[in-house]
Simulated assay, not measured.
Amino acid sequence: MLSTVDTAPSRVNPVAALAAALVIAVGLVLSVDWVSALTALGLELALVVALRIPLRALLSRGAVLVLAAGLTAVTILLYGERSGVVHWEFLLVTISDGSITLAIATFLRVLAIALPSVFLFIGTDPTELADGLGQLVRLPARFVIGALAGLRLVGLLGQDWRYLGYARRARGVADHGRIRRGAGQAFALLVAAIRRGSTLATAMEARGFGAYPTRTWARPASFGWRDTILICAAFVIVAVAITASVGTGHWNFIGSR
């Protein structure tokens, strides 16, 4: 279980991790340049080492992130801003100095913005996050607990998909027509998910969930010095990245485009 991994994020309140990720995302989205993105990315990797994030867990989750950032960069490379020397052109596709620079900046920025959302939540228990959102952020308990219940059911979708595949193969209807089989199986999975959600909603209402505007919490959520340090580290990362970008003359505010 990821919740049993003894890492610094697992000892930090998930609300603090969420706040730190939001601070970095908001700070880095203000400019599209490679200097601030690369600076923030380097500081985030240093934070990964300081928090003792398991390398295997980071790589398994970061691989998808690198793929998504790469695909975004390729799109910008082919259809981005045309400026400077044009290296290749075909119909709507144009690769120029401007599109190359913008693609590199976009790749680094996607990594820098999304990476904290990956490593800060390794080892985080969704129940602890719900406790923090309900007690510290004061979000409505009905919304928080309902979202937590739905999140718990997401993990069952993969198991349901496998069981549906086994059942279809046992009936001999999964031997051909892969596209048609996948569409039918996806519809069956949707129906099963709706039925399970309706059953869960009925069970929660039968137990009095949401009957009163207030509720008690089984586990109190606290905000300690580790949480404060993590949020301050996020502000430092953003401040250093912006300072480096402005100081080198690469600051490119998104509103100016």
Score class of each variant (00 low, 15 high):
60 S>D: 10
65 L>H: 11
99 S>A: 07
50 A>W: 15
75 T>E: 01
47 L>I: 11
95 I>H: 04
62 G>Y: 14
82 R>L: 00
85 V>E: 06
79 Y>D: 00
85 V>C: 08
45 L>C: 11
55 L>K: 07
79 Y>E: 06
72 T>D: 01
78 L>D: 00
100 I>A: 07
95 I>G: 07
68 A>P: 03
50 A>V: 10
53 I>P: 05
64 V>K: 02
94 T>L: 08
64 V>L: 12
46 A>P: 14
87 H>C: 03
87 H>V: 15
85 V>M: 09
81 E>I: 14
80 G>Q: 04
55 L>C: 05
102 L>R: 13
73 A>E: 06
94 T>K: 12
96 S>F: 12
88 W>Q: 03
103 A>G: 00
106 T>Q: 10
45 L>S: 08
79 Y>P: 01
86 V>S: 07
48 V>P: 04
90 F>C: 10
90 F>Y: 09
93 V>M: 07
87 H>T: 15
42 G>W: 13
56 R>S: 10
49 V>Y: 09
67 L>I: 05
52 R>K: 13
87 H>F: 15
104 I>T: 01
77 L>S: 09
69 A>D: 06
84 G>Y: 14
93 V>W: 14
70 G>I: 09
48 V>R: 06
76 I>C: 13
67 L>S: 05
63 A>P: 07
50 A>C: 01
88 W>L: 02
54 P>H: 11
74 V>S: 02
97 D>I: 01
61 R>T: 08
105 A>V: 04
102 L>V: 03
91 L>W: 09
102 L>K: 15
67 L>P: 05
90 F>G: 07
67 L>R: 05
103 A>M: 01
52 R>G: 07
71 L>K: 04
44 E>F: 07
51 L>D: 01
75 T>N: 10
